[in-house]
Design a binder for these strands. Structure first.
Lengths: 250, 250
DNA sequence: ATTTATTGTATCAATATGATACAATATTAG
DNA sequence: CTAATATTGTATCATATTGATACAATAAAT
């Protein structure tokens, strides 16, 4: 959702009015799918990272990349635009006033932010371990929240997240973007649990393994001893070179 | 792209600034896929139907529906949002000036339309026969143009159309929206040629027929005599009831 | 040494898809 | 009227994909 106006914003930068971007940043850790959320200062209200588009200098996607870097500390992140939210009810003046006051701001709330906004939804897929979550100036928390433990979300961010997940689900087998969520090396079981949380259903282990191996994009590494009382699983690595060759052939 | 400002617009209606909608309206006739285009007065410049969003009263989709009805005369059309185009280069002041002058307008060109616009792309699927294409006040032509004979298009409408087609192609087997393009009754061959133009490749007749029949949503009607020196083909009808039952089971 | 949990692979059945064959039939040519 | 021709509907076979089950390998605990 719309990032609040900082001092920088007020001095010079000019945003396209009435348009924001919101980013559903997915990460994967401990076999759980997570989303990066902000919490507004002195509230229990959470929200998606978001921002506005610099009128002179930025494509929409560039604005998204800027916000992504601000919140996660990293660049070159897998991005997908999944929808626009333009209901006439998308004017959140009261909520913004509340957030503004809770943050202890003494200045007058900028009028423009209370107007109706159309927001463009993007989702990002990244390796959670690489990130250093960083709150903005109206948030006191920025961090990873499990997809199954969503807190109260501001604005219409709940439905934006649902749409993002649905979109991710549809793309799962078409693109192989899911590997952006995985660490450098992982076991089949790790990968399977990611697929299962995204799809929201259990998959059959042996057939899943067959399918993944037949993609021809996984490089097998050393075995991985868990300490468990059983055979060790292999680690795999997503092989970008093989993937690129595959894409060329299409 | 952005519809030009009419007298109505100037008197009272208030649009969200910097945002437009553009609609790729698909129709199918004579075994050819067509798009509804406008041609600006006294030019050979074509463009997609489009418009702006009433700030007080309209969801984005409602604005799209309004424009659709204005240009085609019909309501309740299948709609799908396929993308947002927000390049920083999307400011078309010079083109608008040219269109404005060619249309013989003596008034000053409204400044707001020369600014940067973010446009939301929708595609619509409808039965071409039901429509009465209707130009707007800066166009002298509104009609169906074959997808393979695209004229020079204004703004970035060429790439918007390409993206729409790509999106339609991806959705082809996921949804069964394609039937919105067909007339009340049609032969398998008609349907196949539609699939072939969308996919841009030939399909095998017998297997296509098997696939369509196995969907369980086609009702077989009488035979259809073409006058050709061969067996008559059956006509089929898309059975909405069967389709709805199918969806419920999912 | 035996037990247990998990892994990698093989295999068989059920489906789906690609390719080909062929009978049915509406018209035209002779 | 008969034969030729083009197109349609359906069947069938081979191949590929997917679902379900079996089983041997093995790391640690008993």
């Amino acid at each position: 959702m719309q990032k609040k106006v900082t001092d920088e914003d007020l001095s010079g930068e000019k945003f396209i009015p009435n348009i924001s971007v919101d980013i559903v940043i997915f990460g994967f850790h401990n076999r759980q799918l997570k989303i990066l959320l902000l919490r507004f200062k002195n509230t229990s209200l959470y929200a998606l990272p978001g921002g506005f588009i610099n009128e002179e200098e930025e494509d929409i996607e560039e604005a998204v990349e800027r916000v992504l870097t601000e919140r996660t500390g990293i660049k070159d992140i897998y991005l997908e635009q999944f929808g626009v939210f333009g209901s006439k009810k998308r004017a959140f003046g009261e909520t913004h006033k509340h957030i503004h006051e809770s943050a202890g701001k003494t200045t007058e709330l900028n009028q423009w932010i209370t107007q109706r906004f159309v927001t463009v939804g993007y989702y990002a897929l990244l390796n959670l371990k690489d990130t250093i979550p960083n709150p903005d100036d109206v948030s006191d928390f920025c961090g990873w929240i499990d997809i199954n433990e969503m807190p109260t979300l501001a604005f219409d961010h709940k439905s934006i997240i649902e749409k993002a997940l649905e979109s991710l689900r549809m793309m799962l087998d078409l693109k192989l973007a899911v590997f952006n969520l995985m660490p450098e090396s992982f076991t089949m079981n790790d990968l399977q649990s990611l697929y299962e949380t995204i799809l929201g259903k259990k998959l059959q282990r042996t057939n899943f393994q067959r399918k993944m191996l037949s993609l021809g994009i996984l490089e097998r590494l050393d075995k991985h001893w868990t300490g468990g009382a059983h055979k060790a699983a292999y680690l795999y690595r997503f092989d970008k070179n093989k993937y690129n060759e595959m894409q060329k052939e299409k």
